[in-house]
C-alpha cells in the first residue's frame, strides 16, 4: 500500500486516495477549434512510461482535493507531490534531487 503525501494533509495511506490518470492534460479552451485527430489525442492518448510518470490523485476520503504526483512506475516511489495548477516539474531533476539528498544521509 502506497504512502502518499497529500499536499494539503500530509502522508496518508493509499486507501484514502483515488487514482485519476495522467496529469497536465488540460482540456482545450475551445474544443470546437480542434480537428478530430487533435481531439482524439486529447481524449485518449496517454503516456505509459516505464519510469517517471506525472499523475493525478484525489484525496477522496480526506480533503477531497485533486493533486499531482511524480511516481516511478517501476519502483512505485513517489518523488514529489504538488497542488493541481502548479507547472509540470522536470521529473528527472526531481528524482535526481531526492536520490542525491538520500545518498548524502
Amino acid at each position: 500500500m502506497l504512502l502518499i503525501a497529500c499536499p494539503y494533509c500530509g502522508e496518508r495511506p493509499e486507501t484514502e486516495f483515488r487514482y485519476a490518470g495522467e496529469a497536465h492534460i488540460a482540456r482545450p479552451h475551445d474544443p470546437s477549434a480542434l480537428n478530430d485527430d487533435e481531439w482524439v489525442d486529447f481524449l485518449y492518448q496517454r503516456a505509459n512510461p516505464k519510469g517517471l510518470h506525472v499523475e493525478r490523485w484525489r484525496h477522496i476520503h480526506g480533503c477531497a482535493r485533486f493533486f499531482n504526483a511524480v511516481r516511478d512506475t517501476v519502483s512505485d516511489r513517489i518523488f514529489k507531490t504538488y497542488e493541481a495548477g502548479e507547472p509540470r516539474p522536470d521529473v528527472n531533476a526531481v528524482a535526481a534531487d531526492v536520490l542525491a539528498k538520500e545518498s548524502e544521509r
Binding site: 483515488r18 485519476a20 488540460a26 482540456r27 493525478r56 484525489r58 477522496i60 477531497a64 482535493r65 485533486f66 493541481a84 495548477g85
Partner: peptide, 13 residues
C-alpha cells in the same frame, strides 16, 4: 460528484 469535482477543481478553478 467525482467528475463534477474534477472539472471544477482542475479545469475551471
Amino acid at each position: 460528484l467525482n467528475m463534477m469535482e474534477d472539472y471544477l477543481q482542475t479545469e475551471w478553478p
